[in-house]
């Protein structure tokens, strides 16, 4: 018995930590079915599907959600494209200032969000654009902080790519363009998709930077922030649960697809 325990001690402890990270998640899921007795009482008073059936009961919440989705989608798109190009440049090309470029990519990740947000705000104010704070400034900020994460993800995927594969393609009569589209790109694609998923969740989740640069717009995290004093509607938990399920589905599907590819026809 002790031997069994000693053998599995680390695993059990690890699973314990994992379980701890799921306690708040479990509460979120649970509360999405809650029927609160009053608006700002946070106890589980009764089971209901009401919140799931009426997600947009509070129109402001859904408006904020829509904005977050739009920003998240656009920021992901732009950051993924620019970041992928930069990732290729950094791994596959030699140019003056390559190490400065690497530093430039690294720094935004080393800066606390509050610093990034206040810097941008002072720029927009100095440029006389404080009246224009809103959708576009949020988008600019989100692309900025997602960019570095995309570059880093794509860069490491590319660096891990065995370059003899590209040599083999060239050896087998593939022109540089064919080598790129038939060998390099398909092999880097999972990294790019991962980077996009990461971008989206960073963008969707950001509060600190957005709050400083949003003008009169309200994103989903800002809505939660604003609503929590008066009592957050239970639908917020529904959104949290949906986000969780959605991303789990994406990740698990991705993993299963790549496994099936590896194992097919065994």
């Amino acid at each position: 018995m002790t031997a069994w325990l000693r053998e599995r001690m680390v695993l059990l402890l690890g699973l314990g930590v994992l379980a701890y990270t799921f306690v708040p998640i479990a509460v979120v899921v649970l509360m999405s079915f809650n029927e609160p007795a009053a608006r700002n009482v946070y106890s589980f008073d009764g089971f209901t599907l009401h919140n799931w059936a009426n997600i947009c009961e509070d129109a402001a919440m859904c408006e904020a959600l829509g904005l977050s989705l739009r920003i998240g989608f656009l920021a992901t798109l732009v950051a993924t494209v620019l970041g992928t190009l930069a990732g290729f440049a950094l791994v596959r090309h030699d140019f003056a200032g390559r190490s400065s470029a690497n530093l430039l990519i690294f720094l935004p990740m080393a800066a606390p969000e509050i610093v990034l947000g206040s810097s941008l705000l002072t720029l927009f104010v100095a440029a006389g654009a404080s009246g224009l704070l809103g959708f576009w400034t949020i988008l600019i900020a989100h692309i900025m902080f997602c960019l570095s994460f995309v570059v880093v993800t794509v860069r490491s995927r590319l660096a891990g790519l065995d370059d003899t594969l590209e040599q083999a393609a060239a050896d087998l009569y593939a022109t540089p363009a064919q080598t790129f589209w038939r060998v390099t790109f398909p092999l880097v694609l999972p990294g790019i998709l991962g980077a996009a998923l990461l971008s989206f969740s960073l963008s969707f989740d950001d509060f600190i930077i957005t709050n400083l640069n949003s003008g009169n717009e309200t994103t989903f995290p800002m809505y939660v922030w604003g609503a929590y004093r008066v009592g957050v509607p239970m639908q917020v938990n529904v959104i949290g649960t949906i986000m969780l399920l959605f991303s789990l589905a994406v990740v698990v599907t991705g993993e299963l697809v790549s496994r099936r590819r590896r194992r097919a026809l065994v």
Binding site: T164, L165, Q167, A168, D171, L172, A174, P186, L187, R261
Partner: peptide, 20 residues
């Protein structure tokens, strides 16, 4: 001539088979 223009083919040391 560049690699893809030569009538020469290579069996690479670690095979370099396209995994995808």
């Amino acid at each position: 001539r560049r690699a893809h223009q030569r009538p020469v083919n290579t069996v690479f040391q670690n095979y370099a088979l396209f995994p995808h």
